[in-house]
Amino acid sequence: MKSPRFKRLVLFFFLPLFLYFSIYTWNWKTGHLNYLSTLVGLDLAGWILTPGRWIQHNTNSFWARYIYLVGVRQENEELLLQVHELEFEVLRVAEKAKAADRLASMLRFTPETTWDRRGCRVIGQKLGPNAVLETMLIDVGTLDGVRHHDPVISTKGVVGQILKPGLKFSNVLLLTDVTSRIPVITSTGRIPAIAHGQGSGSFLEIKFIPRNDEIVPGEILLTSGQGGIFPKGIPVARVVEVTPADVSLFQKVYAEPLLNLRYYEELLILSRRETIDPLATNGTILDNPEGNDNASAKDIKPPTPNP
């Protein structure tokens, strides 16, 4: 015969504990509750934050367009000059790209996956005590075709990847997060390495660069396309510090991201196409998904603002 104290202990302590761990383990295996909480939490928070962000965006835009016009004329002239230089550069690079396409088709390279791109807005950053990773909330989700691990970039380079896609909002894991690792290659030496995040405000650690390979500060690191997440050739970071190895097989290399991740309002999401376009070149990002106008990773334009 069990004492009432024992029964009470079982009823109020062991039974809830057993139930809790059962639910926890079941969810760990199936992920159903994670999915449900993502749909509820992310989307609810997104809908709450969106109107405020819309007001903020329009106020900033109104201020910048109609009130704060200091130096606009000078900036306009500088930008026009820059546009002429870039037009010339685009022509030169386009010719090279065409030549590369011809060579690739002559050598019968297998065409790689093509990518569609979609603009989105950042509407939130770190939301709540459980948001321990470096993440951002953006205003597109699975209803817009966004999937887990889709690459997120800006006009300057890699931002991160989709961590949790909700229905209309998604969480983006930034490349500076300590859990983020991106396969990269150096722009000149083509040395493969891994860019490892070290937390907000810190440089990225570039791992596995052999001690005899030459890498210099200022060199740009590009995505290598080997991880299966990012297309090849998108800028990731710039090398800032190289320490030659003394006993290790690898050098100690640090790089800074090409963009300040916390101050971006609009981003681009790349989505892998299910079917391979035989006409497309390797790792192509399509400017116009419906048409045949292919654009290289360097030709990425800022997203058109949503109405």
């Binding site: 809790y20 639910i23 760990w28 994670n34 909480s37 939490g41 928070a45 939301l127 005590p129 459980n130």
Partner: peptide
Amino acid sequence: TLWVFIQEGIGNFEFGVIIL
């Protein structure tokens, strides 16, 4: 119930931390 789903949804842990 609602708060649990919101906090778990916007957080980065496996479901169950907020319940605890």
